[in-house]
């Protein structure tokens, strides 16, 4: 608040004239009786004026005495502004406190959740480590089993092959046995034919040694038949020999 200029000494200070009825002197603040413009003004030499509460558009200067309240020393518009600001600040403070309480609660909840999750993560980490160890062990077992399977598979192929080869050998042997049986039969037939040839030859020799005892025509016919028998036996023998060499 600025002090108005001091009036000249011995000259009473008067408020400016009020040409507008709205400027009727308002009632003074507490402790200040209403002022009458026509009433003689109190002696206020050396005492600052205060702004009266007429309205925002008027400025009524009233002398400020020692009993004037501190708020009354502030102009009315300023006081309203300060009250609004104070009210707003108080509201904001209340809101801030509310937010703080809310955020504090949320923070506590999230901290609890973070701790729980951290514990859970530790547990899962331990399980993961254990599972990884199991995976490594199982992989080693799988590798070992794969090796065993490869070995077993190879051995199975070998055994199947050995069995097949033995089957081939058995089939071949059976064929050989059948062949030898056939050759044996053939050899027996050849032997029989040769034996008959020899037998007939012996008879022919007897006939030829006694020409007078037999009809020459019959002897010649017998000789021809013996030749046929022996030729046949010889042919069978040749076939047999060829079969043996094949």
């Amino acid at each position: 608040m600025t002090s108005p200029p001091s009036p000249p000494s011995g000259d009473p200070v008067r408020p400016p004239s009020n040409p507008n009825p709205l400027y009727a002197p308002p009632s003074a603040g507490p402790g200040h009786p209403p002022t009458d413009p026509d009433a003689p003004r109190p002696e206020t030499s050396g005492i600052p004026f205060r702004r009266g509460p007429a309205n925002d558009e008027t400025t009524v200067l009233t002398p400020v005495t020692a009993a004037t309240h501190i708020l009354d020393r502030i102009p009315l518009s300023e006081r309203k502004r300060w009250r609004l600001l104070a009210g707003g600040a108080a509201g904001l403070a209340v809101l801030g406190i509310g937010f703080s309480v809310y955020l504090w609660g949320i923070n506590n909840q999230w901290q609890t959740r973070a701790n729980d999750l951290s514990d859970e993560a530790h547990g899962l980490s331990e399980r993961l480590t254990e599972t990884r160890s199991q995976v490594v062990d199982l992989q080693a077992q799988i590798d070992g089993l794969n090796d065993q399977l490869d070995t077993a598979q190879t051995r199975l192929i070998e055994l199947a092959d050995e069995k097949a080869q033995e089957g081939d050998a058995a089939a071949y042997a059976q064929q050989q046995i059948a062949l030898y049986q056939e050759l044996s039969i053939q050899g027996g037939a050849v032997a029989t034919a040769l034996d008959r040839c020899v037998s007939e030859m012996d008879k022919l020799v007897v006939y030829l040694k006694n020409p007078g005892s037999y009809d020459p025509g019959e002897v010649a016919a017998f000789e021809a038949s013996v030749n046929v028998i022996c030729d046949s036996a010889q042919g069978a023998n040749d076939s047999f020999q060829n079969a043996l060499t094949d």
Partner: peptide, 21 residues
């Protein structure tokens, strides 16, 4: 035994002929 389908469906054929295999 670890054999795949192609191996299992494949067979060995032994033809025992009149003379020979």
């Amino acid at each position: 035994y670890g054999f795949d389908a192609a191996q299992r469906m494949t067979v060995r054929v032994r033809n025992i002929e009149c003379q020979g295999l």
